[in-house]
């Protein structure tokens, strides 16, 4: 049986359809779950929080959504070992909910994806490379070593910030699953387009069942929207950033 994945929609979410579509194309039974249907979330095997501007980014990006009733089910699920992936605004929500990096209490964030160094929204192509061992984060475990994953950075608040000592801890203990890379695979911190600490693009938790990733792999994920589309390939077939979603679905199938 296919894994049942809930794609959560808060007021202000805007990337639910492509996120659902890619999960389906990667083999999951993914459904969009609206905020008025929060009670149904307990029946799902995994959760994906897509991009957008939940609750208008009031206070801080993700701050209100982290207190939404939908997060009760997500927090409970994550603590029980269910897989949870947040993309862009979804990642911000997971940090505000204390699920990633998960080094503090629930709903008491220890780190944030906050305002870009340039002070405004940016939309540009980026490359990501996993910089932790495959076993560190189950969701990213099926990715080949050193693979460069294409994605789009499209956010106003994507710069990882925390107390300096805590940032060093996150770096040292393998919480930073993906970093911004160049075409040669280098991951110098300056490659982060918004000045993210340690060049961080994604964080996991201690257990490795939560992934909070700022750039959007699902926007460069089929041949038709993939930068390096090959001539003669099926334009509707998954490619590019879909490898991360495939890895997510593979992890679910192994449960």
């Amino acid at each position: 049986m296919k894994a049942r994945v809930a794609v959560l929609v808060f007021p202000g979410t805007n990337s639910e359809e492509e996120t659902r579509d890619l999960l389906v194309d990667c083999g999951a039974d993914a459904r969009i779950v609206h905020w008025s249907e929060a009670a149904s979330l307990v029946y799902y095997d995994a959760f994906v929080l897509p991009g957008g501007f939940a609750y208008e980014d009031r206070i801080r990006a993700g701050a209100i959504a982290a207190h939404d009733a939908m997060l009760d089910a997500v927090i409970e699920g994550a603590q029980a070992g269910k897989y949870v992936m947040g993309i862009c605004n979804g990642a911000q929500i997971l940090l505000e909910a204390g699920l990633a990096p998960g080094t503090g209490e629930i709903r008491r964030p220890t780190a944030a994806f906050t305002h870009n160094a340039q002070g405004h929204f940016i939309c540009e192509r980026v490359l990501l490379r996993r910089t932790v061992p495959a076993t560190r984060c189950a969701i990213a475990a099926a990715l080949p070593e050193n693979l460069l994953i294409p994605a789009w950075a499209a956010h106003a608040q994507g710069r990882l910030a925390a107390a300096p000592a805590h940032l060093d801890e996150l770096d040292r203990d393998g919480y930073i699953v993906f970093r911004y890379a160049d075409a040669a695979g280098a991951t110098d911190a300056h490659l982060a387009p918004q000045g993210s600490a340690h060049g961080a693009a994604a964080l996991t938790n201690r257990e490795g069942n939560v992934l909070a990733i700022m750039p959007h792999p699902e926007r460069d994920a089929w041949n038709f929207n993939h930068l390096d589309r090959r001539e003669g390939s099926d334009p509707l077939a998954p490619s590019g950033g879909s490898v991360l979603f495939k890895s997510f679905v593979t992890a679910l199938e192994r449960l």
Partner: peptide, 14 residues
Amino acid sequence: LYRHYDAVVRGRTV
């Protein structure tokens, strides 16, 4: 100028 705008939300931009 246009890098301020989201060009790819919805995932259907070719």
